[in-house]
Amino acid sequence: MLQNFSIFNTIYNDAPQPWQLGFQDSAAPAFTGIVDLHNIIFFYLIVICVGVFWVLGSIMYYFNTKNSPIVHKYLNHGTLIELIWTITPALILTVIAFPSFRLLYLLDEVTSPTITIKVIGHQWYWSYEYSDYVTDSGQSVEFDSYMIPESDLELGQFRLLDVDNKMIIPVDCHIRLIITGADVIHSFAVPSLGVKIDATPGRLNQSSILAERTGTFYGQCSEICGVWHGFMPIAVEAVSVQDYLAWIDSV
């Protein structure tokens, strides 16, 4: 129970936990990169926070009205110190910006995808189209994915997260996602895979994922889209290539 309240706890799962403050475990290079960048910036954050709060505490302790009863009524500004506290944060922001932009552009790259999956957000469910394959009737493989209502949950399934039809992907394969919305703006977000992209009606957004391990990764619609916005979860199941081929053959 206590581990849920720790900021630095290690979460051994691919779904959010109650009171979780840390990241979920990474399952993709994109998310590993995001966590790395977060931790690099967090390093600077600790230095700045401790430094600022130490100086603030010291000033409050040594220069309060009891210890220093004279008011410096003519001390309005100090050009030098103002220059220092303006330029220093600007330099720190510049230092932070470089790895941030590097990661941003790396995430934008779509590396020769093995398959393409079209993800469509609806009020209030997701549908997936595997356009690389056709069924016996010549249609592309497509299905809807609805949340499993609480009354139908089976033991081990997650409330508000599990769906009737998961999006199945092969592990260790670059996958291109084409994302759009059918009615209003939704957002396709799966933390463990490091993907979060708007599903905008009339527009095709592109992203890429690569699952490094098998497992089921959960996400949720992340753009408020109406009354049941909180009830259209995303479940992505990464399976071995053999299992994926068997699944696609059975659809």
Binding site: I46, V47, C49, V50, G51, F53, W54, V55
Partner: peptide, 13 residues
Amino acid sequence: DLSVGLGLGVTAA
């Protein structure tokens, strides 16, 4: 104060 604050900060970081 700056030395102690930044020193502690870097140590914590």
